[in-house]
Amino acid sequence: MTRVYITDDHEMYLEGLSLLLQRQTAVEVTGTSSNASDLLLRLPQLSPEDILLLDVNLPDMEEEDLIKKIRTIRPQQKVIYLTLIRGTRYVHKLLKYQVQGYILKNASVDELVKAIDAVAAGGQYFSKEIDILSEGEFRNTLTIEDRKVNEILSKREVEVLKLVCKEFSNAEIAQKLFLSISTVETHRKNLIAKLGVQNTVGLVKFAIRNNLID
């Protein structure tokens, strides 16, 4: 029986994933947390054999700060990251902390169980949709000229990008697109991750290069 502990700040996703995994005969869900602080509080009581299924974007702590703390408390704890982001920027930032997996949240239950089994056996697992390149081979999407914008970004992300480039605040973008401010913040993070840039300046350069703004 493979033991997993899930951390995700979206209650419906957390409960749904927990129920789906509990139906698997070879997987035991030992507990859940909805934020990084609660996970760190519970981590010393977890078994070293537990595999952490960990959302990349948690509201109370940056992903790199969290994995550093996890490694301090439990250097050998196995970690599989769950994410909606296909960009490789997060992957390379987290790989240096010896994480065992990185899987998209829209993966099937079969694929997730396959990832859990691989990590439990001492291996690694990364969603096939994510290009895992070595640091020497890594190129961010800003420099890949043959990629079409609509293959990288959703329509909503393009809308947010254009408004970001026009210097609208998160609150103003939320009002214009009838979104919550937190949703706009998530779109900003996803844009930066997908395009492999560091800040708003990088977003503007991408938009200009791809004729999204004048």
Score class of each variant (00 low, 15 high):
residue 5 Y to K: 00
residue 7 T to K: 03
residue 8 D to C: 01
residue 13 Y to G: 08
residue 16 G to Q: 07
residue 19 L to E: 13
residue 23 R to E: 11
residue 25 T to W: 09
residue 34 S to Y: 09
residue 36 A to G: 09
residue 40 L to E: 03
residue 50 D to N: 11
residue 55 D to F: 00
residue 59 P to A: 08
residue 60 D to L: 03
residue 60 D to E: 12
residue 61 M to H: 07
residue 62 E to T: 10
residue 62 E to Q: 14
residue 65 D to H: 12
residue 65 D to C: 03
residue 66 L to S: 02
residue 66 L to E: 03
residue 66 L to I: 07
residue 69 K to H: 08
residue 70 I to P: 04
residue 72 T to P: 02
residue 72 T to I: 12
residue 73 I to C: 06
residue 89 R to L: 05
residue 90 Y to V: 08
residue 93 K to N: 07
residue 100 Q to P: 00
residue 103 I to R: 00
residue 114 K to Q: 15
residue 116 I to L: 03
residue 118 A to D: 08
residue 119 V to D: 09
residue 122 G to F: 03
residue 124 Q to A: 08
residue 126 F to A: 01
residue 134 S to C: 10
residue 135 E to H: 06
residue 135 E to S: 07
residue 136 G to A: 14
residue 139 R to T: 13
residue 144 I to R: 07
residue 147 R to P: 08
residue 148 K to W: 04
residue 148 K to M: 13
residue 148 K to F: 08
residue 153 L to P: 05
residue 153 L to D: 02
residue 155 K to D: 06
residue 155 K to H: 08
residue 166 K to T: 12
residue 169 S to M: 06
residue 169 S to N: 05
residue 178 F to D: 15
residue 180 S to R: 10
residue 180 S to P: 15
residue 180 S to N: 15
residue 183 T to P: 11
residue 186 T to V: 05
residue 188 R to N: 06
residue 190 N to C: 14
residue 191 L to I: 13
residue 191 L to A: 01
residue 192 I to L: 03
residue 195 L to Y: 01
residue 200 T to W: 11
residue 203 L to S: 00
residue 203 L to K: 02
residue 204 V to C: 01
residue 205 K to L: 01
residue 208 I to H: 14
residue 208 I to T: 15
residue 210 N to T: 04
residue 211 N to P: 04
residue 214 D to L: 07
